[in-house]
Design a protein around this nucleic acid. Sequence first.
RNA 1: GGAAGGGUGGCUGAGUGGUUUAAAGCACCUGACUCGAAAUCAGACGUAGGCGCAAGCCUACCGGGGGUUCGAAUCCCCCCCCUUCCGCCA
Length: 434
Amino acid sequence: MLDIKLIREQPDTVRQRLASRRAGDEAKVDELLTLDEQRRKLLGEVEILKSQRNRVSKEIGALMGQKKLAEAEAKKAETRQIGDRIADLDKAVATAEQARDQILIRLPNLPHPTVPPGASSADNPVVRTWGSQPAFGFKPKSHVELCEHLRLVDFARGAKLSGSGFLLYTGWGARLERALIQLLLDVHVREHGYTEVSPPFIIGRDCMFGVGQFPKFEDQAYAVQEGQDGSTLGKLYLLPTAEAPVANIHREEILKESQLPINYVAYSPCFRAEAGAAGVGTRGMIRVHQFDKVELIKIATPETGYAEHEQMLAHAEKVLQLLGLHYRVVLLCTGDMGFASAKTYDIEVWAPGQGQYLEVSSVSNCEDFQARRMNLRYKTETGENRFPHLLNGSGTALARLFVALVETHQQADGSVSLPERLQPYLHADRILPG
RNA sequence: GGAAGGGUGGCUGAGUGGUUUAAAGCACCUGACUCGAAAUCAGACGUAGGCGCAAGCCUACCGGGGGUUCGAAUCCCCCCCCUUCCGCCA
């Protein structure tokens, strides 16, 4: 959520920065300001009346204490009408406020000045590249072929259980998935100093609102209901990312500056309805309704937010380096960023069997956009309450990492060699058929 | 799912319709005393919104929402959460 005061004081700047995202949101600013002005005008009126009522009520109390009942009754009658006007004005204030907030909570974050202008992913500059595309003395297979050959994933039976977009990992595939989760958690906890948390996988609306998933992207979420009780629908959702619960851990709290930065890492499955995306890239493991992810979250002061952002990116990259995977880092342009983010790097890993880079990580600084939505603050050394920066980054998403891993490390004989760091977790150095 | 008891500032905790401007204590902060500290004394000590150049003034907030009333932490209704017990259950 943007700061209403910033919009009031610098409407042109806000309009311009919203326009750079090319989503048309700047058109809403005028209406927002009109409603805001209306609210403040009504609020001023009603507060004067309330002040008056408070004063008279106190006088009535004093009169009754002195047993001057007739005078007290007279004042009561007089004040009754003020109460009616207050009730009307209160309603008008609430109406204006709700209308204002309906717009405000749907405006996306403002891009950081270092974010390049652009319309789509085609305009994202590549920041750096690590490693190079591996050369094969044979035509590399796609992960789908490898998974079938090595029986890592049973696509048909996954679909039988839950429909298309759901995976049944089997044998070495299941073990590899588990090993990857364990490795990533270990790296971030032991080498990067994050605190591991394990959140609920079913979360409340407030979590979804706080990180900016709701209300705009409600149709992307899986809603759950208890048994046959339809009235429970709309309260709980399957998490689309661990960011949603973990970023909300300290919602409504006032942290001490000395506690910051807070660094959390969490494993969770992620559930995405991907409404409207049916049929797009549904073959294989690249776009699925459920995947595993290890997520990094930081709560930092505005002073260190962007340094922490770079560090988080390095932490996510480290994972790919350990697994010997070629990747590139791109900086998302203004037109390609997510709703809550002020600046985002994507890490794209090379998948030889696909002949393309796959997004496995998105590392964002949302600045105070989410903190404001969830009323998360911290107290500075001087006693001032401020909104901290909230950062999130995948460290990393698993299904696509799995794809890149098996495609990159496949051998001519159809086996997959395992990177050294993964071997202790699997007690093997390669995956063979059978 | 059933029963009972709870939810008041950072913490403990008083407060059953009217100087409550939420008592008191603890913690924290500032000042005094001290070479310094402790103890003691004095003061300050919540969150947000609005108005104002400012000093400051006003409004709201006692788990959340609604109601009664001139006036609600206090009375009424609905909901949420916590504790204990019972039932069910991995």
